[in-house]
Amino acid sequence: MNTRKLLPLSAVALAAALALAGCSTGTPGSSATSMPGMDHGAMSSSSPSASESSQAVGDHNAADVMFAQMMIPHHAQAVEMSDMILARQGIPNEVSALATRIKDAQGPEIEKMTSWLSGWNQSTQMPGGHSMEGMMGADDMAKLQAAQGADAAKLFLTQMIAHHKGAVVMAQTETAGGQNADAVQLAKDIVAGQEAEIKEMQQLLTTL
């Protein structure tokens, strides 16, 4: 599969993101990749409360807005990839469990970031001309859709590692330049959670 560090946000990914509450896509092997759905603890296991939403509407800057606009479709693609693997037969239990955790964590985070953008009177769509790290291309997604059994599990892990790496890069950018406390905290949670999952997936690959 072709690797790429940056891929312009596609209309397909954006449409999928909005459908999940936005949620959907990265390229394996790229040094920068995705953020997608990880287990970030209690913060990602439930929808934002009224108080959280109120706090998030406070001070924010352009970095906070861009972080949310980019992470929504990035998370959405991770959810889409997880759905693909969960629909397959013959997938090792450990891989299916990981895909479930990713999906369960990132869905609520998409809702959280969507609510922030709404409170900031900002579009959930990224301005044209921006690119995201770790997003899968259409050919990568097609290969994952077609793969079966152990091959599908290996491809999912390889692609998701790249996707997670991209998310970590974007989250680190937010922690360095963001202003909104809630957004910066989510970015820190993404870095910690996804770096741990990258190690987990690399270990799983050695067993397949």
Rank of each mutant, 00 (worst) to 15 (best):
A99W: 06
T100L: 14
P92Y: 07
I91T: 01
V95C: 04
L86E: 09
S82M: 10
L98S: 07
E80T: 02
A87S: 14
Q89C: 01
A87Q: 11
G90M: 01
D104E: 14
R88C: 05
I102M: 15
E111A: 11
N93E: 14
S82P: 01
R88Q: 10
M84V: 12
P92H: 05
G107H: 08
P108Y: 04
K103E: 11
E111I: 10
I110V: 15
M81C: 06
A105G: 15
K103R: 15
I85L: 14
N93V: 10
P108S: 08
T100R: 15
M84L: 15
A105F: 09
T100N: 12
N93K: 13
I85D: 09
Q106E: 14
P108I: 08
R101V: 07
A99L: 09
M81E: 06
V79F: 09
K103P: 02
E80D: 11
E80N: 10
T100G: 12
S82H: 07
G90E: 03
E80G: 02
M84N: 03
K103Q: 14
A105S: 15
I91N: 02
Q89V: 07
A99M: 07
V95P: 04
I91M: 08
V95D: 05
G90F: 01
P92T: 01
E80F: 10
A97N: 13
S96K: 13
R88L: 07
V95E: 04
E80M: 11
Q89R: 04
Q89E: 14
V79D: 14
Q106K: 07
A99E: 01
A105D: 14
R88D: 06
R88P: 02
A99D: 06
I110Q: 11
A99I: 06
A99R: 07
D104L: 12
E111M: 10
A97F: 08
A105M: 03
Q106C: 13
E94Y: 00
I110D: 12
N93L: 08
L98F: 13
K103A: 12
Q106L: 04
K103W: 04
A87H: 02
G90V: 00
L86S: 02
V79H: 12
S82E: 06
S96C: 07
R101L: 13
L86Q: 11
E94F: 00
L86C: 03
S82R: 05
P108V: 06
S96A: 14
Q106I: 10
T100A: 15
I91S: 03
L86H: 03
D83G: 11
P92S: 01
A97M: 07
E109P: 04
L98I: 02
V95I: 14
A97V: 06
V95A: 00
V79N: 07
I85P: 07
V95L: 03
G107Q: 13
M84A: 06
M81G: 08
Q89M: 05
D104S: 13
D104T: 14
G107V: 13
L98P: 01
G90D: 11
P92I: 01
Q89P: 03
A87C: 06
Q89L: 11
E94A: 14
G107K: 11
I91H: 04
I110A: 15
Q106N: 07
A99Y: 02
S96G: 12
G90Y: 01
